[in-house]
Write a protein that binds this DNA or RNA. Sequence first.
DNA 1: AATGAATGAGCCTTCATTCAT
DNA 2: GATGAATGAAGGCTCATTCAT
Lengths: 227, 227, 227, 227
Amino acid sequence: MCDDTRTRVLNAAGPIFAEKGFHRATVREICRAAGVNVASINYHFGDKERLYIETVKRARQARVAQAPLPSAHPDDPPEERLEAFVHTMLMRMIGIEEPPWQWKLMMREILQPTKAFEEMIDEYFLPEFHMLLDILDELLPPDVPEHTRTQVGLGIIGQCLFYRIAANVIQMMIPAEERARHYSVDELTRHICRFTLAALEQSTTPRTRDEPSEVSVCDESATDELA
Amino acid sequence: MCDDTRTRVLNAAGPIFAEKGFHRATVREICRAAGVNVASINYHFGDKERLYIETVKRARQARVAQAPLPSAHPDDPPEERLEAFVHTMLMRMIGIEEPPWQWKLMMREILQPTKAFEEMIDEYFLPEFHMLLDILDELLPPDVPEHTRTQVGLGIIGQCLFYRIAANVIQMMIPAEERARHYSVDELTRHICRFTLAALEQSTTPRTRDEPSEVSVCDESATDELA
Amino acid sequence: MCDDTRTRVLNAAGPIFAEKGFHRATVREICRAAGVNVASINYHFGDKERLYIETVKRARQARVAQAPLPSAHPDDPPEERLEAFVHTMLMRMIGIEEPPWQWKLMMREILQPTKAFEEMIDEYFLPEFHMLLDILDELLPPDVPEHTRTQVGLGIIGQCLFYRIAANVIQMMIPAEERARHYSVDELTRHICRFTLAALEQSTTPRTRDEPSEVSVCDESATDELA
Amino acid sequence: MCDDTRTRVLNAAGPIFAEKGFHRATVREICRAAGVNVASINYHFGDKERLYIETVKRARQARVAQAPLPSAHPDDPPEERLEAFVHTMLMRMIGIEEPPWQWKLMMREILQPTKAFEEMIDEYFLPEFHMLLDILDELLPPDVPEHTRTQVGLGIIGQCLFYRIAANVIQMMIPAEERARHYSVDELTRHICRFTLAALEQSTTPRTRDEPSEVSVCDESATDELA
DNA sequence: AATGAATGAGCCTTCATTCAT
DNA sequence: GATGAATGAAGGCTCATTCAT
């Protein structure tokens, strides 16, 4: 069966690419893991790069199912929905002992985008981010400018992501005992939500300086070669 | 002179490791850039890996000088010192068009720690983080537990770091024009500080929304680990 | 239909083998061009080599029709028939902008004979060469020995072939403008015929320049081998 | 010693490239024959293609020494010098039992030019051809147009070359015994010279048609990829 | 008769490393 | 200390061929 080999290769490629990245992973290793011939990759995917792109695509698809965002009940109070959102996010980040390879792979793409990047943003990141924005919409007073809402949203995501990215740092910085007590998913969820809500309540009347400053967030060219 | 060759190799290795990472960078390329013989590396550093570790070490040392934290004037109001801190952080992250290779190299270590990692934390990250904690100390009421202060600090760092890490995502998500207006270093500094201060102020008098009151900011229900 | 696939493969193989030679041409490329499955070739021809031999065979067969020698009118004066012969030869060599793949394929065989070679000589080259010899027979006096006639014939063929083989050299050696004026098929035909006829006329009465008279055109001193 | 390995590789590469051509020859085979590591080729020549070019270059250089043209004695009668020239040419073509690999390699270039081609023409072919033209200059009446002289020269070269190129054909066409008697280098030299001289004498008053015909010798693009 | 999938051998190239000088 | 040359292992990829259907 065609799909059989193809699928086995993809399944084998995922964890390996996730662990080693595009360049350190070798097709030979992937094929050995999949129990197929090296030429299969050329046959089914053309070359290593296209196998990688396909793998990332599948990773994203499989990712959603593993820790799906709670289906929004529009009637729930927005505070509750925010907490559910943050909780899911943190669960994805640090809630699972060994983060699944799909996640590692996606992190690699975020940090060192390749050709597989764009699609991931459009089909995975943006929809979920808009879900967060909708929640914030209900929490923020109506006169808050669009970009403030976005910034608040990014701040939330940023804090969640940070606990994943800086996991190594935190592990070294905070004693295991305290980490277990105060840096659990639940505990961090509570902290981030409380912190955010407190700020929102306070900043009912946001105020923006009018002169834009010249240094923007990301001027540098982003998407280059397969890192 | 021995030191001459050694130094030239280190100087050449920095930007190359930063740009390509450990594995994609080749000793030949580094030696060509340094104008030395390929065998020099093995002679002076033993092997490629030890050259890399040495390079990271030097990167950290050189890093501090480039965007140094504002020397704390203990008399300045803490709000001002917080703003200065965040501003410096953001400047390091996204303020410089082409981030210096030292920074790239350190980011690589944070995300994919190698043997060069531990030392970096102790000598670079922790000192600066404690400077932030000191500022927060003055802003937070005295009864706030230690871990909350740490979490707030991590949140601030997390948001700053996020704008660097997710630069690619933001670039795709937010139109260039708006990015220039609302996502400059100054603007983001203002947002993060306002947001943080607002939350802090609010949490001075921990207040329960509708959840049971025991879930306070200093609640110590503990669960599990941090990956 | 079996023949359908077989034929399509052969038709596709011709130009490809002609262009790239046996080794650089790939079965995949041929099959793609023919719109058939890769396995077809092994099924119908056994292997790549036998497909090649079959292709050369067909090329020869198709070749004759494309630039056929002028049907000999035995009544025409031999000078005219010689000119027609040479003209046809040159036309095949350099007269057609893009030489047909059949020709390219046959050239390859002449220069680097494979198993497909022998048959080509017998059925294609020899008949035409004997036509030339017949013409020379009428032009040469009856007492000229056989091998001289053969040598003259080979000389004519050799000159024609040379303009094809050395096309690249001539292109670099002679300016385009002069090439167009004096190296057209017509012009070269005239030159070769005039030259040959002049030599033949002269050698009717073998005449010694200053060498000893025994070195005549029909001298039969023999030496060694032909590589 | 650097030159040692380099030279050994070149010496080994020559016959192999000559026998199999660029594509069929493998670097592994060459290195095995040279008794060096495969990586040597990359180190000394960059890649297979540049090794090939270098090999052709050396072949040409070495070629001249093996059957050098007789140093021209301007006082010798031109007929004698012509005979010496043709004799040398034929000797190169068919005089040596196993044609040296240098010759095979150069033939490959003539027939399927690669990047190594141009230099060969300029430094090897042209000088020798002009030597022939000088001889013809003395044999031809002064009013003979330039292009006729060139054509006569090309005709001579063409005939010589033909005996090499068509060696396979001749071998099949002419019985061994007769080949030994009448197709030796000496015999063919005599024939070609006699034939040429006879024609020259006759064509004292060459005549050119005035209208150039439109089909030129070599319109097609010549130099392409390494065949 | 025909196919798509799979194979293993082999290709050129690149790499970090070592060796003799 | 420093060098240029040399090495072996491994890299991605391509090929003609075969197998089960």
